[in-house]
Simulated scan of single mutants.
Amino acid sequence: MPFKNLKHQATTIFANDKATAKERMAQICELLRDGVGYYDWVGFYFANHDTKTLHLGPYVGEETDHTVIPFGKGICGQVAVSNNNFVVPDVKIQDNYIACSMTVKAEIVVPIFKDGVNVGQIDIDSNTIDPFSPKDEEFLEWICEQVAMIM
């Protein structure tokens, strides 16, 4: 896994305060999709706690109709409620799954916390069954910590 190298590259992106937070997050999406062979769609969703909805932010990959997701719906919506990482090794066996593409086989969602509040999440779809390991979770938790600092 190339996480050590990706961490170094991501640190450079996060440190570029000449770019907006949104621009840096878009660069992170590209870095992750291009750097990890089984990350086929990488994006951020951000919470609106008043409407209890998630709103799509920067992403790379196939276009999605899922630009607004209610809390509790799908994997992302469940993470907005549970505040926990959610790894789905095989989306076919997940009851509350929102299909974005017929090619998606697995998904991982990790929340972003700012001042103790779940403000969003990184969502990664893979076209490979069961590709995610604890190393992915650990790396993505670090990514989310860095995103929180630039928000």
Rank of each mutant, 00 (worst) to 15 (best):
E138L: 13
Q9Y: 02
V42N: 10
C29Q: 00
Y38R: 11
I13V: 10
T67F: 05
F71C: 04
D95N: 06
I69C: 03
I129F: 13
K22A: 12
Y59R: 06
I69K: 01
A15H: 13
G72A: 11
N16C: 13
E23L: 10
A47L: 05
K18T: 15
P70N: 14
A148E: 11
P134G: 08
V79R: 00
K18S: 14
K105D: 08
D40T: 03
K92L: 14
G61K: 02
D125N: 10
A15D: 12
I150A: 06
I28W: 01
D136E: 11
T103Y: 09
I122Q: 04
G74K: 05
T12G: 11
Y39E: 01
T51A: 14
L140M: 13
D50R: 02
D95E: 09
Y59G: 04
I75P: 11
Q121H: 02
Y39S: 02
K105T: 03
P2L: 12
K114P: 00
P111W: 01
M149D: 12
E137M: 15
I98E: 07
G77P: 04
V36N: 01
G35T: 00
T11G: 05
Q78K: 07
I129M: 12
M102G: 09
E107F: 07
S82E: 10
E30P: 02
P131C: 11
I98N: 05
C76W: 08
V36H: 01
L140V: 07
R33G: 02
I98C: 06
A80N: 00
R24C: 12
P134V: 08
P89I: 09
T51S: 13
G74M: 04
T51N: 09
V109N: 04
N16I: 12
V42A: 13
I93A: 09
V110Q: 05
M102I: 11
E30W: 04
V68S: 15
V117F: 02
I93F: 11
N84F: 14
K52Y: 08
N16Y: 09
D90I: 05
A106T: 00
F44K: 09
D90Y: 10
K105L: 13
Q146Y: 11
G35Y: 00
K105R: 15
Y39M: 04
V81G: 04
T67K: 10
G43A: 05
T51H: 08
S101W: 06
A26C: 07
L140H: 08
V147I: 07
V110G: 09
D90G: 13
P2R: 14
I124Y: 03
R24I: 09
P111G: 03
P70G: 05
V87S: 14
I98D: 06
Y38F: 14
V81H: 01
I28G: 03
L32I: 03
R24F: 07
D65L: 13
P134S: 11
P2Y: 13
F132D: 02
A80T: 00
A80S: 01
A26L: 14
K73W: 05
T12A: 13
S133D: 08
I75D: 08
V68W: 10
C29L: 00
P131L: 09
